[in-house]
Design a protein around this nucleic acid. Structure first.
Length: 160
DNA sequence: GCCAACGTTGGC
DNA sequence: GCCAACGTTGGC
């Protein structure tokens, strides 16, 4: 069986909900990536992610948006329990247990990094084509190229 | 709080 | 299937 190439992702989290510190403090540093309610983002998790893929842990909707840590995909895709919980803000009345609509993976935080703000990311010619930086981008999970990953984790983070 | 951009919904 | 209205995202 052929081993697939490792892929890379940027995953947004609101730090008030789950910051990189929260993730590092979790049991085994693993958090279930619940609450994604966008089909494109779901499809990345369901169809393309593999255990061990690299993840840029990004803080969004906060005072200092940017990359805050490194993580990895830690599980295969499985149904998001919050879709069935009427008390959850992610409850989806249309989701059927027999055919779950929302699927997610677990993410393991590896380490906190210095905060690489969105402004700094935009300054890098090497990152000019990053999906996250595209005009109007709102996707909470976006693919990162191997070259972008290498640039960020070696060049931008070499002293961190 | 503003608002551009985008996804979803639902009437037709 | 079209598309206007509406809701959400997320940086600023």
């Amino acid at each position: 069986m052929a081993t697939k190439t490792k892929n890379y992702w940027l995953m947004k989290s609101e730090p008030l909900e789950c910051s990189i510190d929260d993730a590092l403090a979790a049991r085994h540093q693993v958090v279930p990536w619940t609450g994604v309610r966008n089909y494109q983002a779901r499809n990345f998790m369901r169809d393309a992610m593999q255990v061990g893929d690299g993840v840029l842990f990004y803080h969004s909707s906060c005072a200092e948006p940017g990359i805050a840590g490194l993580a990895e995909v830690a599980s295969v895709p499985y149904p998001d329990a919050t879709q069935f919980d009427p008390k959850s803000k992610y409850f989806d009345a249309g989701a059927q247990r027999a055919e779950p609509r929302w699927i997610h993976v677990d993410v393991r935080a590896l380490r906190k990094t210095r905060l690489i703000g969105i402004g700094e990311l935009r300054e890098q010619p090497a990152l000019a084509d990053m999906v996250i930086l595209r005009r109007g981008n709102r996707l909470s999970i976006t693919p990162v190229t191997a070259a972008e990953w290498r640039f960020i984790t070696t060049k931008l983070l070499k002293t961190a």
